[in-house]
Amino acid sequence: MSIKRQKLVSTAAIYAMLTPTFGLLAVFSLVPFVWAFVTSFFDYEVGGESRFVGFDNYLEYLHDPTLLPSFGNLLFLTVFGLLIVSTVPLAVAKLIFSLKSEKARYLYRVLFLIPIVVPGVAGMMIWQGMIYNDTGLLNETLRMLGREDLTRGWLSDPRTVLWAVVFMGFPFAGGINILIYYAGLAGISESIHEAAELDGARGLMKFLKIDVPLVMSQIKLLTILTVIGTVQGFEGMFILTKGGPGFKTMVPGLWMYMNAFSFQRMGYACAIGVLLFLLILSLTILNMRYFRSSEELKAESA
């Protein structure tokens, strides 16, 4: 068998092995995407007639009364999420990394990772039922302190609901993010730290000037994941508040879901989905373009 033929057979075998994966990906991800894109140009009610409406669904969404509140909420949630993801887990990772004992470092890594075994939905329901409920921890504490006047429905009061939602998961220190930062910190060469210390860098200064730039790849990764997760995600709001009271915690993803499955406005929901896709794509491109990782910075300076 010639080398060329051998190569061909080996390539064909690789493609053959990839085909089922690609097929499933196409059926469950790519085809629905194309279908959603096409459907966004129709007034389509499940079980009803479908009518081509051009860009009407998109134009209608631009005038949708939920558009501004839901994108306002999305912006707030994204900014808050980014602030949290780029600070608390990094600080905790640094603290663990700074421990002298390897055993202690291992123990704390495990302890901080354990909360991820609790499903997110269960965590939310615990906060909803045990902390924010009328007879939950917050209100009962206030009552105990004689401040009945301050009690409220934390998830139903328009003034507190958004803050109540974002503070769920406080103190934000558990989970995989710490491990990602820890891996980044572990990858920084000891010689860099020694050189920095010789130059007089200590404590917070060393952390900000040496560690943070060198874990920029991790920050970038978590930034992208947070943005995508926040824009796409609606299950939290669905479970906790259904986007209420009013539209105080509505997010575009939840409105898309409700239009599709509650109001049977599938075409309209698809239009929202396509717009969300474009938004995520744009934000990811911006992130990739302007947010440089340590490797890229190194490459540029070389």
Binding site: D157, P158, G243, G244, G246, F247, K248, S262, R265
Partner: peptide, 28 residues
């Protein structure tokens, strides 16, 4: 209408709980 139901429930909830003014509610 199902969409009407959803919006009315939400905005009435907000209105009677002092989340929006009467003018805003009626506009909705």
């Amino acid at each position: 209408d199902l969409r009407f139901d959803e919006i009315m429930r939400r905005m009435l909830d907000l209105y009677i709980n002092n989340g929006i003014s009467e003018d805003e509610f009626m506009a909705w």
